[in-house]
Design a protein around this nucleic acid. Sequence first.
RNA 1: GCUGAGGUGGCGGAGUGGACAAACGCACGAGACUGUAAAUCUCGCGGCCGAAAGGCCUACAUAGGUUCGAAUCCUGUCCUCAGCA
Length: 365
Amino acid sequence: MKPKYFKFKYGRLKFPVFFPDATRAVVRSLDTTDIENTGTQGVLVNTYHLYKEIGLAGIQKYGGVRKFMDFKGAVISDSGGFQVGSLIKKNPKLGKVTDEGVLFKLDNTRIMLTPEESIRFQMSLGTDMVVVLDDFDAPDASVLENRNSVERTIKWAERSKKEFDRICKIRNLSVSKRPYILGVIQGGRDRLLRKYCIDALSNIGFDGLGYGGEEKVKGSINYDLAQFIRDSTPKDYILYALGVGTPQDIVAMSKLGYDIFDCVLPTRDARHGRLYVYNSDSIKKIDLNEHNFYSTFNPDRQANLSDNSPVSLACDCLLCTRYSKAYLAHLFKINDFSSARLSTIHNLRFYSILMEQIRNTIDKK
RNA sequence: GCUGAGGUGGCGGAGUGGACAAACGCACGAGACUGUAAAUCUCGCGGCCGAAAGGCCUACAUAGGUUCGAAUCCUGUCCUCAGCA
């Protein structure tokens, strides 16, 4: 039976859950109090970025990332696998991928991240779920390249699991005390490859699998593939839609049975002046079954300077309960940091309301 | 009043005889953003027509002049700033 809850150090969260990205142990422009006040239950931190900025010794000195941030919610750490795609495969000058691992060359630093080192670092972060290092497919990858990525991802998954087990044993972590470990599925749009990858990862043994790769990040999600992946994954596995997504993506993927989501969209969009707003005049009346259950709002437009109404009536965040569109527009206009903070708070509250609504109202197919 | 400097698009500011509807900023407008190298990036920004290529018109205070050609040179007028009275 698939778990209904995500267990973490201080409690458990009912699936599905959304984890905004606190890549470098901070949700940009927010402090931990702000995060908590948005109803956000967990965040995702990033191995590559924290490894580069703080290092293994540093994070051990701080006693883990949760203590570092003073965050009592759940924390997942990503492996650095995404940076294989977002950095190196987009720009080969930034590093190199070999069977041994990933060499990052950026900002005058050289970082060698192996599957084992990624796991070691994540265990030192003390997160509630660790993710294996995977070989991210390039956006324009051929089937042959997809195949190579899958083979490497599987080999790295074996090594990751082995290192994970070794550390759990040394630290004497029981199954209930150790973090979740997630395998990552590559394979592009090729179903056979995806299936092959899923079977190999399942044989290694994980708590869940993540739907990875570029197929879902070119503007829209391939729901058919997502469904195929769901159907191919062991029924007792947690399903994680890595990097997903827009509100409608999350609704659709939740219906398909995906349990965990993370995405930069709400936080990045907030900083870039795009707020999510329910097409409703109260939280109670939000209806996710409506085709257009939300709209976007761009506060950084001159016309908003004369609008004293709140951004959204179907929101109880700091921005919507206290300030007007005009005030937010003013903050954007004068380029004040608080424009990012208030917008990010709003968008995260939009997402936490979204997840509450999904948990309460969505029937899984 | 005298002397000097100057008046360019919504603003700042290039350009000093042809490649100018005018660099570069800012402002403004539109778009992008999906396991965060992103408080970022892209596009538009005199008017009209066109999907585009492109075409036409009106513009560098103002009125004249010189020239094949003027934002650029000459003259008058108006205005701004600085210094001196």
